[in-house]
Amino acid sequence: MRPITPGHRGLGLRPEFVDTLLETPAVDGVDFLEIAPENWMHVGGRKRDQLDRIAGRYPLVAHGLSLSIGDTQPLNTPFVREVRRFLDDYHIDIYSDHLSASRDGTGYLYDLLPIPRRAENLDYLAGRIRQVQDITGRQLVLENISAYHGYPGEMPEGAFLAELAGRCGCGILLDINNAYVNARNRGTDVRAFLAELPTQALVYYHIAGHLELGDGMLLDTHGTPVADAVMRLAREVWATHGPRPLLLERDNFVPALDVLLGDLDAVAAVLREGEDRHVHA
């Protein structure tokens, strides 16, 4: 299977275009696909058949939704072991999830909730991340989520991620749209956030569209093309931290595959300018 390298472009695998992907041996412009392991584990039938065929044609990256690394309940180790088996079965090297919580003392909430980013929480989180990395036999890569709630006295997000990566060796999945959305909603400096991120810990990038509400608040919806401002930010990321595999997320109002490929081409064209700047810097 082809390796996933910096500059490679990918899409999140969606049921809307699985069949189109399977019509040809490999679609030009798609270097890899991202899947949520939870949506495929212990699933048979047509879906499993599709995944098996997709896995024979494209390298896969796993992007989880349910790890809940930041909650305060005991780590769900049976679940993490199942993830390990799935990653092994499909020869998936990159396993990412979100720096968030999805569970409380009652149970799972099925969403990504922000956790308090305080220095005194770092050791606890680093310990849980190490546990996951031990079980999966892989680096855990964590994404900066879009968050619409904050806690008093938090560290800046970039500094928190950098400190966490330094303590436990986790990787960072930089979601460029989330960084933009958070900075706009919080009134913070997105460039300061980017500058705090440790380049060597960045494993891959996400980019997506968002929705602007009437009051100016931005919602990370994955339901629109990438906004120009986010494209420009992506170019800066590319220039600052260098190329990485880049994944376009589209989970709502999913257009036809050729439209998505057009969006991906547009992003890639903008990023090449950033790459030139990175090379010349």
């Binding site: 930041g70 909650d71 305060t72 005991p74 780590l75 919580a101 409380d104 909730l113 956790i115 308090p116 305080r118 005194e120 929480n121 050791d123 606890y124 310990g127 849980r128 190490r130 546990q131 990395q133 031990d134 806690y151």
Partner: peptide, 15 residues
């Protein structure tokens, strides 16, 4: 690795 300790009390409470 095993978890060294439970979560900090304030973190648990806030979350």
């Amino acid at each position: 690795s095993t978890p060294d300790a439970g979560p900090p009390p304030l973190m648990a409470e806030e979350l």
